[in-house]
């Protein structure tokens, strides 16, 4: 799993040397930003269900045709799966906030997503709309501190860009 510490250790191991001052400084920088990340992760985990519901609702409001027969949300089972997927992305963002890197999203969310959505004929625009709504809806200090919000939105944008 890619994170600052594992990247540093991998590089040091490839060179066969002990962790150098540079390596320790890199980890120190990561630790300094960690408080904001962990705050964002905690707040997101606490409100995950609500955030998922709001994001899904926003997506079906913008694209009501999705509920028509033959579309991705034609019955309740399929609608539920849409909400489940959004919860999945938000959970991965929660993991990314904890790790401090895009490793979890890359490995478990984005790798192969394009192929899967094409095969299942799912519109990625709907996911983009839902996550964009979440990004624009999140605000400080109501939801979390400004630093935490910046970290959270960075990963939302990363996911949006990957799905666009």
């Amino acid at each position: 799993m890619k994170s600052v510490v594992t990247t540093v250790v991998t590089a040091a191991d490839a060179a066969g040397r002990f962790p150098s001052q540079n390596d320790l400084e890199a980890v120190q920088g990561n630790i300094q930003r960690a408080a904001a990340r962990l705050e964002a992760a905690e707040k997101l985990a606490a409100g995950l269900d609500k955030v998922t519901k709001e994001a899904g609702d926003a997506c079906f409001n913008k694209y009501p045709y999705l509920r028509q027969p033959g579309e991705a949300g034609e019955n309740q089972v399929k609608v539920d799966k849409c909400y489940r997927d959004l919860a999945h992305y938000l959970r991965l963002i929660n993991y990314c906030l904890v790790v401090g890197g895009t490793g979890p999203l890359d490995e478990w969310g984005i790798a192969g997503a394009r192929e899967v959505y094409r095969t299942l004929r799912l519109p990625t625009a709907a996911y983009v709309e839902a996550l964009t709504y979440t990004r624009d809806r999140a605000c400080s200090p109501r939801d979390m501190s400004p630093e935490a919000l910046k970290e959270f939105k960075a990963y939302l944008d990363y996911t949006i860009n990957a799905l666009s």
Partner: peptide
Amino acid sequence: MLDAFSRAVVSADAKTAPIGSGELA
């Protein structure tokens, strides 16, 4: 290879649960 943070992520993923206050402590 894992570190303390990614270890928490891997064990949370096994339960498909987000990482909340308990694990964050």
